[in-house]
């Protein structure tokens, strides 16, 4: 097949990247995190509990991390000066006439004057790697989502609920504004929540899988933000037995599992879009039983329909298995 230009472009890119000198930050306007603690004690205390703060305060690896709070909120010299001037004026009983201190500091969230892109730019100073390498240009970036739409750094954790709608999955990441990662996604993808309540579903509501089991929401070069190159490669992560190669392959199965399955939940068994035999008859309409409608009580219909006999429908390695019966 065709030769892809990807490796050449990638090699050039790596060469340029290693050649480019690292940028240095101007440190003259920084005041240090202790100054933040003076006025923003609650926020400081909550931030101090995070892993990020532990790295910033106790084990910084570069100049940016050494800046602590100001690594994200920007140099605070003018902010502090304005705030102190305000405090002095208040203490003297004089009306403060200067600019509000808030305009000298970077703020995040819905009320921030910064665009989502500018807010994200602060986070990406450190996080534009790992799973975020492809954030720029991704579906969520291009739709104007800010990192703080889905993550919080030093706000209160979501209120503890007495009863959970979905089981909380086991994860090291707890910086969500909601109890579970799935509930964050459901804000903009409400139909997925409905689909997960169907009788045939993957174990997401049981807390054994999350949206991130299949999707990299931070950007992926793959379709639908999948963690693997294709739908099938994603499914093979948990179902490697269906990977093959097989002697007898079923081409629609090999190309895309979604030709037959609805991954987010179905009211049909085995996450099928439609029950056999109609599912199979979407394609198989030829001589013999595939072309016959069949009664509801027929052996071609009850139980699992066609796969009562053609059970090796995902591929067969038997020399006598060309009809997926062996």
């Amino acid at each position: 097949m065709r030769r892809s230009p990807g490796p050449v472009v990638l090699a050039l890119l790596a060469g340029v990247l290693l050649w480019v000198p690292a940028q240095c930050a101007d440190v003259s306007q920084y005041v240090g995190s202790k100054a933040c603690d003076e006025c923003h004690h609650q926020g400081y205390r909550k931030f101090a509990l995070t892993k990020m703060a532990k790295v910033f305060f106790d084990a910084p690896r570069n100049e940016l991390e050494q800046q602590g709070c100001e690594a994200c909120h920007g140099p605070a010299q003018e902010h502090v000066e304005a705030a102190r001037a305000h405090d002095r004026a208040r203490a003297s009983g004089i009306a403060y006439q200067g600019p509000p201190s808030g305009q000298f500091i970077l703020r995040f969230g819905k009320d921030s004057p910064l665009s989502a892109r500018d807010q994200n730019d602060r986070c990406l100073q450190c996080h534009e790697k790992g799973q975020r390498l492809f954030w720029q240009g991704s579906a969520h970036e291009s739709r104007g989502l800010a990192c703080v739409t889905c993550h919080q750094v030093h706000q209160d954790p979501p209120a503890a609920v007495a009863a959970a709608r979905f089981q909380q999955p086991l994860t090291g990441n707890t910086l969500f504004p909601k109890r579970t990662q799935m509930e964050v996604c459901f804000d903009c993808h409400p139909m997925r929540k409905a689909q997960l309540l169907r009788s045939s579903h993957m174990p997401v509501r049981e807390g054994l899988m999350t949206c991130a089991s299949c999707h990299n929401v931070h950007g992926s070069p793959n379709p639908k933000l999948l963690i693997a190159a294709t739908v099938n490669d994603t499914c093979y992560k948990c179902h490697p037995e269906r990977r093959g190669p097989f002697l007898w392959e079923h081409p629609p199965v090999m190309e895309n599992c979604l030709n037959c399955h609805e991954a987010h939940g179905s009211s049909r068994a085995q996450l099928l879009r439609i029950n056999p035999p109609r599912l199979c008859q979407e394609c198989h309409t030829s001589t013999g039983h595939p072309g016959t409608p069949q009664l509801a009580t027929s052996r071609y219909v009850f139980n699992r329909g066609c796969t009562n006999c053609h059970s090796q429908i995902h591929g067969s390695n038997s020399p006598s298995g060309s009809r997926f019966q062996r």
Binding site: G6, P7, N222, A229, T230, D233, G244, P245
Partner: peptide, 15 residues
């Protein structure tokens, strides 16, 4: 069978 498949995925994005 000696089944052998290779899947090569290349993506280039410019934003």
């Amino acid at each position: 069978l000696n089944g052998r498949k290779t899947a090569v995925a290349t993506n280039i994005t410019l934003t």
